[in-house]
């Protein structure tokens, strides 16, 4: 029996319907603006053809807002209780290689001791079906970080070839999902060969991208102070609005704020995304230590290109998804930083 399974793209609905009998399945679908957004599948939801989703897939494991705990006064004691519920299994379908890699980066933060149990529960219950990229945007540069859009990994990898989609399980969780939907899938005896051809054409397509030559050479982990003190940060950041768009769309940005809220008859503790680009970021002890936008701007890129790799065996904190390139209101982004900082001498 082949390790590959397949289905006609026209029949994808059957696969989604079969899955949805047992658990929720989220699929990128085009909204009214023509942007791809993850939507829980129900009859009529169609898989988008877009290269990638507007918002990154991190929302499923690290949502923008969540309640962590509640407190209430019982007699003379304060009782603390959990407000978050354990999640049920779900399938996240059509995640691209860049976003798949972003989960590993989030894992290194949230699953390190002490484990973030909220995040861990969602990771445990989420089954990720990754989809190879037959096409890419101008702004894609995953290859710069060694990510292969032809081999997207995750629990199950999928490839599109003409009017068929091929699947291969990479983990036990993925194999269990594939087995649970085997009724609607066919064995793909020709899978090996077809997928090899798809990969080949993806590689050719990737080499024609405008950012295909981008390298990380100026950020080799040996020049922390040189990069930090670069005079270029001033010009690069001079028109940054400090809006936070880049951080909210970024699949690897992971900063959050935790606060308590007085509900009137108790207290709830919640967390929500925060952004290093904000003036009211990280006021833990007294105030934000980064007083100027230059310092805040520099932090975002130093974190991705220098601090994170120094602490994680050279793995960069950017996956090249290109969202910050497409979304920044002033068209400033990590690629511009990589091409400028550390290149002063050139």
């Amino acid at each position: 029996m082949s390790v590959f399974k397949k289905i006609a793209i026209a029949d994808l609905d059957k696969l989604f319907a079969k899955t949805s009998e047992k658990m929720s399945i989220y699929v990128p679908t085009d909204n009214k603006d023509g942007d791809a957004v993850y939507t829980e599948w129900k009859d009529g939801v169609k898989l988008s053809d877009a290269v990638n989703t507007l918002r990154s897939a991190k929302d499923f494991f690290f949502p923008q807002t969540e309640n962590l705990a509640g407190f209430k006064l019982v007699g003379k004691t304060i009782e603390m209780y959990r407000t978050a519920e354990e999640k049920e299994d779900f399938v996240l379908f059509g995640v691209r290689a860049c976003d798949v890699k972003s989960f590993a980066i989030l894992d290194s933060v949230f699953l390190a001791d002490p484990v973030d149990t909220f995040y861990a529960a969602r990771r445990e219950h989420g089954i990720v079906v990754a989809l190879a990229c037959n096409d890419a945007n101008d702004t894609c540069f995953c290859k710069t970080f060694g990510i292969d859009p032809a081999e997207p990994g995750a629990d199950v990898s999928a490839w599109k070839n003409a009017d068929e989609m091929f699947f291969k399980a990479n983990t036990d969780k993925g194999a269990a999902w594939l087995a649970s939907v085997s009724d609607v899938l066919e064995d793909a005896e020709n899978g090996e060969g077809v997928v090899a051809d798809v990969k080949q054409s993806i590689n050719e397509m990737m080499s024609t991208l405008p950012l295909s030559g981008l390298t990380t050479e100026s950020f080799d982990g040996k020049n922390l102070l040189e990069a930090f003190n670069s005079p270029e940060w001033k010009d690069l950041s001079s028109t940054c609005l400090g809006c936070g768009t880049c951080t909210f769309y970024c699949p690897t940005c992971q900063c959050y704020d935790i606060r308590e809220f007085d509900t009137g008859n108790g207290v709830k503790r919640f967390r929500c995304w925060d952004s290093c680009m904000y003036s009211d970021f990280t006021k833990m002890a007294a105030e934000n230590p980064r007083h100027t936008q230059l310092e805040r701007f520099r932090q975002r890129f130093m974190h991705k290109l220098v601090y994170y790799p120094m602490n994680n065996n050279g793995v960069y904190g950017c996956v090249g998804c290109g969202r910050c390139l497409a979304k920044c209101p002033i068209s400033m982004n990590i690629v511009k930083v990589m091409k400028t900082v550390g290149k002063e001498k050139a």
Binding site: N31, R55, Q64, L241, G242, C243, G244, T245, F248, Y249, Y278, S279, D280, P329
Partner: peptide
Amino acid sequence: SKCIRCNACRKVCPACTCEKCVFDND
């Protein structure tokens, strides 16, 4: 409901020039 609260609309606005926006002010 699509709003991600990135604040870009506020930050770019030439009429939004408060030194400290109420949404940033504890």
